[in-house]
Design a protein around this nucleic acid. Sequence first.
DNA 1: CCCTGATTCGC
DNA 2: GCGAATCAGG
Length: 188
Amino acid sequence: MSWTNERVELLKKLWTEGHSASQIAAELGGVTRNAVIGKVHRLGLSGRAKSTSPVAKPRRNRPATAAAGSTAPSPAVAGSRTSSAPAQPRTQGATALKAEASPALQSQPLVEVMAELVPISERATILTLTERTCKWPVGDPSTEDFYFCGRNSDAGVPYCAHHCKIAYQPVSDRRRSANKVTTARAAG
DNA sequence: CCCTGATTCGC
DNA sequence: GCGAATCAGG
């Protein structure tokens, strides 16, 4: 993958908007965050002032030939599956969902509630999800205002603590889930 | 650990 | 010019 004009433009745009290098790399695809950072510097738009040590740091020699594709960066979101899949989010069990259930698709009222709960600054697109970010979908995936929760989750756990509570309700409680969820969020 | 950007330097 | 490896910091 090369730095075409369009890709550079997108890079500039996203960088200016404050996206992190890894996020930009994910959106561009085919590049690592290192590549993005490198490009940012070459473009001379690193501007986002950091406390760059005025002091010259002693650089160590690079080991040896390591450039040969030793690492296999996988920008794509890996669908991490736990051995035993817990209850699908917001399902009564009857509705057969596709492999990765999308809770947002079946609970419109809840979706609107969630939209208010997730700070814009922490929202994620499909491109920014990692193994440790909450993959709780919010909104209609076919519209532009769709996003993922994106907050931190434990490694391997698909949702943040908050969304886990919603997603993994005991079967015995799920009958009243709609009410409980709404009530729970009101209570905190 | 996870993440962030900064820098070097072989390619 | 490119970006992995590395460094430094949160």
